[in-house]
Design a binder for these strands. Structure first.
Length: 519
RNA sequence: CGGGGCGUAGCGCAGUUUGGUAGCGCGCUCGGUUCGGGUCCGAGAGGUCGGCAGUUCGAAUCUGCCCGCCCCGACCA
């Protein structure tokens, strides 16, 4: 037995090179990989199963709030996109455009778009679907009795990004986009906030990612929105991640698409619309919130498998006996539930060494690992390890109690993970009123090498776009959101509504906003 | 798209300056030995050295062009 070096399963560590660590975690956990298509990823089964769980839970929450799923075209006529001025401006530079509908043999071999098969009007691969869905809404809505119209779609979208990172920003990504139309402004605004609330409940209670809810500043708004609200999370490198957005679109898109209805008095009105979405980016947020230097750590409510169980044996005699026990344990566990889900149990019978399996499952982030060996067999117990605790956290649990104890351990792990992430965020959230301190907080010591520093600064802002861009230009720091609904965590919460003076110009300010570097 | 870095086996890399026909660790396969936080020994498989063109008797190595990836910037969920 060799004294193990302080070797981490993922190299480099977060502290050494955070960006590289992130990529290595994705690879080591077998979540996704780059594809032959630049900027587009292949989501592998373990990664896709995480997305499926996100989808499953959110879909249920959307249904519970009255929404129905539908599906709209991948292609958007160019003229549709042109209908809303701000919308065009926001998306025009990152659109994939389809111009032909046929290929023919080219002069130098290979295929070229057939010049005779050029589309009369180019089609845009949807970067978002407000305009194409708006066209349908315009047909569906005639009367106030048709409202509210509450629709969601699960889809892929394409935004031709210059720089991509697996899950965080890819050219094609998966998401859901909710689109609703309402008879009144009040109702549409309520819807916008209701869905923001759904997102924050989901992020915190399922993903165990603490988030700050609030409106965005004008410069951070969705192109064409009247108001954009977001949930913002702090990653372990202390950069913020916008994890979901909900937009109040006013009547802008209704006007652009002609969504009109007759109200009870017989007057023609434009509807009030909203849209809201979360994407596969959430998986990136999950990774960067919880994972450690040994790889992925998955919150039980979202993990593809709750438990992996494998035998540890010396000779063939015990092997047989242990195998029987493993089967029984797996059967008992699969009959049990963790909240609304049957326990998902992986049984690893490969004849690899125990150490190899151990590390493989650690890197994949399975919440609980269960080993059954000769000692356990004799004692009638199984050795259970929680992914978020070190080897010292292993505990022996009698076989008969496994099915009852495993859900308890999962519940505990789920809440511990959230508490840990919240404590981490609080530790890096500071009220800063002095410009020099603000600059120091956000200035990397070595600009050429990514470095963990900074965090969330709660500072005063006068409300001017000018002061906002001053900080963006100088420090690459932006206002992540205005924390209108408070921030969980006593220390930070207490100081939000203190009056003060703009960190840039010194004008009076009534509340603090959240500044950070971001993804 | 601008600045920087890098493309050699599945992963991580050496070899490139000083051209001579490809290597190391991990992983993988087989045999044995082990198995409770990465067991050890032996035998194997696996690479048109990112691509194309050039220089040369000979190119991973030199030259040109192209492609891709990563980091920083501009933009974004």
């Amino acid at each position: 037995m060799t004294q193990k070096a302080p070797r981490t399963a993922i190299q480099p560590t977060r502290a050494q090179d955070y960006a590289e660590w992130y990529q290595q975690v994705v690879r080591a956990a077998d979540l996704a990989e780059n594809s032959a298509v630049r900027g587009c990823m292949v989501i592998k089964p373990w990664g896709y199963a995480i997305w499926e769980n996100i989808e499953r839970v959110l879909d249920r929450m959307f249904k519970e709030t009255g929404h129905k799923n539908a599906y709209f075209p991948l292609f958007i006529p160019k003229s549709f996109l042109e209908k809303e001025a701000a919308h065009v401006e926001g998306f025009a530079k990152e659109c994939a455009v389809v111009t032909h509908h046929r290929l023919v043999a080219g002069p130098n071999g290979g295929l070229i778009p057939d010049p005779k098969a050029e589309l009369e009007e180019p089609l845009i691969v949807r970067p978002t679907s407000e305009t194409i869905i708006g066209a349908s809404f315009a047909q569906w809505v005639k009367s106030y009795r048709d409202l509210p119209l509450l629709i969601n779609q699960w889809a892929n979208v394409v935004r031709w990004e210059l720089r991509t990172r697996l899950f965080l920003r890819t050219t094609e990504f998966l998401w859901q986009e909710g689109h609703t139309a309402h008879a009144t402004e009040t109702e549409a605004r309520e819807e916008t906030l209701k869905m923001l609330d759904v997102y924050s409940v989901f992020a915190e209670q399922y993903m165990a990612i603490p988030v700050i809810r609030g409106p965005k500043t004008a410069s951070e708004r969705f192109p064409g929105a009247v108001d954009t609200f977001a949930i913002e999370a702090l990653m372990q490198d202390r950069k913020a991640l916008q994890a979901g957005t909900s937009h109040f679109l006013g009547q802008k898109f209704a006007e652009a698409s002609g969504i009109k209805f007759l109200d009870a008095t017989g007057t023609q009105n434009f509807a009030w619309t909203t849209s809201w979405g979360v994407s596969t980016r959430l998986v990136g947020g999950l990774i960067m919130t919880h994972s450690d230097d040994d790889g992925l750590v998955l919150p039980p409510r979202i993990a593809p498998a709750h438990v992996v169980i494998w035998p540890v044996y010396r000779g063939d005699e015990t092997k047989e006996a242990i195998s029987v026990v493993i089967d029984e344990a797996a059967r008992a566990l699969r009959a049990a539930s963790f909240e609304d889900r049957r326990l998902e149990v992986e049984v690893d019978r490969r004849d690899n060494s125990g150490g190899d399996k151990q590390w493989e499952w650690i890197k994949k982030g399975v919440p609980l690992r269960i080993e059954v060996g000769p000692r356990d067999l004799a004692a009638g117990t199984a050795l259970v390890s929680r992914r978020d605790l070190g080897p010292a956290g292993k505990q022996a649990i009698p076989f008969a109690e496994l099915a009852a104890r495993v859900p308890e351990l999962l519940a505990q792990m789920q809440s511990d993970m959230f508490a840990r992430a919240l404590a981490e965020r609080d530790a890096h959230t500071h009220a800063i009123d002095d410009r020099a301190a603000f600059d120091a907080f956000f200035t990397p010591r070595n600009p050429n090498k990514p470095e963990i520093h900074g965090g969330l600064a709660l500072s005063h802002w006068c409300g001017s776009a000018n002061c906002e861009s001053t900080l963006k230009d100088a420090l690459k720091v932006t206002i992540r959101c205005i924390p209108s609904y408070g921030i969980a965590g006593a220390k930070a919460a207490a100081r939000i509504n203190e009056p003060g003076h703009c960190i840039v110009c010194g004008e009076p300010s009534t509340m603090r906003v959240v500044f950070a570097k971001s993804y």
